[in-house]
Amino acid sequence: MIEFITVSKLYPGGTLAVDEFSLVIPAHKTVVLVGSSGCGKTTLLRMINRMEAPTGGSIEIDGEDISKTNPVSLRRRIGYVMQNSGLLPHRKVVDNIATVPLLEGMNRSRARVLALELMETVGLEANLADRYPSQLSGGQQQRVGVARGLATDPNILLMDEPFGAVDPIVRSDLQLELLRLQRELGKTVVFVTHDIDEAFLLGDEVVILEKGAQIAQKGSPEQILARPASEFVADFVGTRKGKRRLSLSSQPADKAGEFVVVDGTGRPAGVLELEPGELLGAASKARSVSDKTAQAGDA
């Protein structure tokens, strides 16, 4: 469990990147911090492994104030996957993956075996083992970055827009891969993105941020969709006029019981299939669920 307690970060230049931020990140869950550029996501993430020091408040991991730990050993037990993969250009894939185990004195042949296992875990062909980062595609580099983050089998994995720089098809591959991994590994993942689709896909809990890392809303994707806390959130997730505002089109489908659905801009979004009389049933079912989540949220 990671706990932010009224954390602030004022950069030397005078930017207040994070303003009294408080959040509890539960263990073994994926929490996604999402928000537009410059709202302080990276700063939040980098305070967890002491790559940045808060100028106010404190951060605890499992109840321990991290400002009292040794930053190097803290970083070695937290996996960190960077936006630009951050691989060392002069080291082969296997040596990049095994960077920390090698620092900790693991012998080279064991480190290689470990790295090859991790390559399989993240879906990299073993024949890439002896390549250099410059000889890999962007997507492959990101996978190496993830494998390196997993190399010490850390409890916590920090991921800063890890799939931001790859094309949409590769990105969705990587996202599915991460979901599979997370089902197997059950790490505490803090994932940063500015892509709300990615946030909803990956997050057990999603935290929507405004400038200064102000929390606009936090909750499960369903909770946020069902009850956006503000117009800002509704706009951000696209339920106000965007692609998540769905309605039935006047165009009837050929098959009985099927309806064409359009999004907020009037573009066809798909086909809705309903048993006769289900429309009403679905509506009332949804209402009772949303009441329950509302109660849970209030409690």
Binding site: V72, S73, R76, M82, G86, L87, L88, V100, L103, R148
Partner: peptide
């Protein structure tokens, strides 16, 4: 960013110097 990454995975300053900065 390379140096930042080396620090981020947990290299000490001396290790950054020896294993990253000097070779590069």
């Amino acid at each position: 960013r390379t140096i930042d990454a080396a620090r981020g995975v947990g290299m000490t300053e001396l290790q950054i110097l020896r294993k990253v900065e000097i070779p590069l």
